[in-house]
Amino acid sequence: MIMVESTSYRRETTAMRRQVILMAALKLFATKGYTETTMEDIRQLSGASTGSIYHHFENKEKLALALYLEGRQDLNVRLQIVMNTPGLSLEETVKGLVSAYIAWFVDNPDLGQYVIQADSTEYLSAQVRFLQQSSDAVSQHVMAWLRPIINARHIAPYPDQLYIPLLFGPSREFLRRWLRSRQDIDFHQIQQELGRAAWHTLRPDP
């Protein structure tokens, strides 16, 4: 029993240390930029040892990719909660997805900006484009939820490639603009209006 607790504690400590390193990297990438940030900068800000840094991340490129994956996976969890909530109507779920999408970026502005900008960065763009096509991408999870709804014709008929842009595209563009200024606005109203717009676009013909 003591051995199990000790192993569990070590794993928890290792996971926490990894998270601290990632958050230090995010702060430095946001303030200094990726190119100017060194692994030594990340080590100093995180308080981790050199050995610990390289135990978790082979190099800065792998660390940058891990940070992107961390954000994408966390956003996916937020959306999965909405899709797995029992008792919601289709309209409530569509609006809930838009609301959860916006809320995640508001709760994680630095990480959100990093995720949004990742596909246009030289050091991540190729890997991000590949990952966006993979089976664990956010869009793939949402499309898996939408598939039976599309097949049952409970939602407006569009080519498959349009559903994700129509659902999240306006919100993403709003967030891209907001993340530049971080101005104080009424996000509840924004969530309501963009959710209503998404449903208006995706709802089946009356």
Rank of each mutant, 00 (worst) to 15 (best):
F105C: 03
Y101K: 02
Y123S: 07
D107K: 15
L111W: 06
L179K: 04
A103W: 08
L175Q: 02
E173P: 01
V138Y: 00
S139G: 08
P159W: 07
I116T: 08
R177A: 11
A152V: 06
L179I: 07
Y114M: 03
Y163A: 01
I116M: 13
E173R: 12
F130N: 07
A103L: 12
P109A: 03
R153K: 15
S135W: 14
I155Q: 04
T121L: 04
L146M: 10
A156C: 11
Y163T: 01
D107M: 14
R172D: 09
T121D: 00
Q117L: 08
Q132D: 13
S134D: 12
Q113Y: 11
Q140H: 13
I150P: 01
A126E: 10
L146S: 00
L166N: 00
S135Y: 14
A118Y: 02
A126M: 07
R147W: 05
Q133C: 10
R153L: 10
I116E: 02
V106T: 07
S134K: 09
I150S: 02
R147K: 12
I102P: 00
D107C: 09
T121Q: 06
W104T: 00
Q140Y: 10
S120G: 04
L175A: 04
H141F: 10
L179T: 00
R172W: 12
D160F: 08
D160Q: 15
D160P: 02
A118I: 03
G169T: 07
A137Q: 08
V115S: 01
P109M: 05
I155N: 00
Y114S: 02
G112C: 07
Y163L: 09
